[in-house]
Design a protein around this nucleic acid. Sequence first.
DNA 1: CTCAAACGGTTATATGCTATAACTATCTCG
DNA 2: CGAGATAGTTATAGCATATAACCGTTTGAG
Lengths: 170, 170
Amino acid sequence: MSRAPVQARKKPRDSESEGPAGRVIEARPTRPVRFGPLADYVGYALRRAQISSVAGFLEAMKEVDLRPTQFAVLTLIRENPGVRQTEVCAALGLQKANFVPLLNELQRRGLALRKAGVPDRRSSALHLTEHGEAVLQRALELHTQWEERVAARLGVGGRERLLELLRKLT
Amino acid sequence: MSRAPVQARKKPRDSESEGPAGRVIEARPTRPVRFGPLADYVGYALRRAQISSVAGFLEAMKEVDLRPTQFAVLTLIRENPGVRQTEVCAALGLQKANFVPLLNELQRRGLALRKAGVPDRRSSALHLTEHGEAVLQRALELHTQWEERVAARLGVGGRERLLELLRKLT
DNA sequence: CTCAAACGGTTATATGCTATAACTATCTCG
DNA sequence: CGAGATAGTTATAGCATATAACCGTTTGAG
């Protein structure tokens, strides 16, 4: 998530988290904010959980530098060598238009490729490169480790119960 | 969500879901795509559930035309009359910079307002207008109805179990 | 009492993700 | 064969989110 400071304006004065001598500034104890009914809404809880889940995913996958969608696409290609773009899109709920730059990036990084010509000349068959297989393999290991940490937080049987409940919402 | 066709290029030819005579086209029975391990990942399940949750929220709130964040902000202001922007941002995990246009819109719609001058002249105290109170009241009713439908899908005690599990992830 | 640093709010800007329309090349079938 | 559908692509718009820099105000250490 390194974001280059594209066009600095003048100079930073705010420091937000550190004082002049590196002293940590305790954000002034603002009066606690009441959440009201928000605290008991499934939608809101889902939102917060998902945000923290994505953060955890990115942290866990730093080494392989894959975003959730990229990871999902690579996994799907590995499970279905030769799939067409449209099929991946339909399965993951992506827009075919948005899939193009996504796959371009994976291809640029040498992880996946389009094999043209397979009987229907309109479509291309998607495959992982050897490098892509290796990277995904490592990604799956990292992901499994993360999933285990998540499962630990959820308690005994919690992960399975959560999966079951979440599927009822889809 | 009405999105004006800002700059049409030529004419639509694709129809995607309907044939020439209105006949529904069964997206050609594409070979089923295997999901592999993706199917059992908490992160992926969360993602799908959240997408469908947001869709359900928007559907349920059509009448009052509130997005999830707007709804959350209004609720928080109602629960904490006079809060400062920064406090709302911290509570909801928003960026103060992004909060500005969000609140502007709520103000433009006559739902909330900034009261200036309260001791610290830098900050403004946030309040709901009478109209805002009324709209939020209706929104809460609609939200409750939706929440009940969600709870029904989750089965007896499912909603509570889900909330508990989700909170462990945050 | 003063002034440098911090704070609340704002503007400007960049990036990612999603959505739609329209285009090209190809395929299919009546 | 040709009209219409399909696979992939381009271009574009929208919202959400993130960061830097700015202004006016407040605060606290010296």
